[in-house]
């Protein structure tokens, strides 16, 4: 079972990101579960969302305390200190930032896992035209798992945004491709 935890702020698309990962994995015939942590719903407030993917039905109903992958959509959340909670040597941390890995690492205490950075906000501004880092990040995620693929993601985007027009679909699909390439 792959367990992903997303750290975001209200309005940044954290909940949608969890949903897109889950829906895409379903296209590849997996079982999945995606749920946000609900508090008072305010734009800008810290928010966590969770995704589980497996090849058999998922029965667990608890927040993800030791994720395989933790995604940070807003780097200011690194300061609150819990984005690496429960993570081990083999865990993967993906941070949306313009900073280098070294400067991000200096902000993390006792983190022993792998770290990757991606300028997802910049990519989304260039492609979609607003700060929606979810699309580039989910593209980058395909580098770590076969439970979702770029092709399945693009299909999902095409269906999800069909009513909003081809332009929006193209922009998001471009963001996915750029995200896949831009992660370091």
């Amino acid at each position: 079972m792959l367990q992903i935890r997303i750290h975001a702020r209200g309005g940044l698309g954290g909940k949608s990101l969890a949903q897109i990962i889950a829906e895409t994995s379903l296209r590849l015939d997996n079982y999945m579960q995606a749920f946000p942590e609900y508090g008072p719903e305010r734009a800008g407030a810290p928010l966590r969302a969770f995704v589980r993917i497996d090849n058999k039905p998922i029965r667990l109903h608890e927040p993800i305390s030791s994720p395989d992958i933790s995604i940070v959509l807003d780097e200011t959340l690194l300061l609150s200190g819990n984005v690496t909670e429960g993570m081990v040597n083999t865990s993967i941390l993906i941070v949306n930032t313009e900073k280098t890995k070294e400067s991000i690492l200096s902000l993390l205490k006792n983190y022993k896992g792998e770290l990757y950075v991606i300028p997802a906000t910049r990519i989304s501004l260039e492609t979609i035209g607003s700060n929606k880092p979810g699309s580039p990040v989910v593209g980058a995620l395909c580098r770590f798992t076969k439970l979702i693929t770029i092709e399945a993601l693009k299909e999902d985007m095409a269906q999800k945004f069909a009513r909003k027009g081809q332009e929006i679909v193209d922009a998001n699909q471009k963001a996915i491709d750029m995200g896949f390439k831009s992660l370091v």
């Binding site: 889950a22 079982y31 999945m32 579960q33 995606a34 749920f35 609900y38 039905p57 109903h61």
Partner: peptide, 12 residues
């Protein structure tokens, strides 16, 4: 069904 835990969790 359990509020939020089931009602707001996306499943297959």
């Amino acid at each position: 069904q359990d509020g939020f835990i089931t009602s707001h969790s996306v499943e297959r």
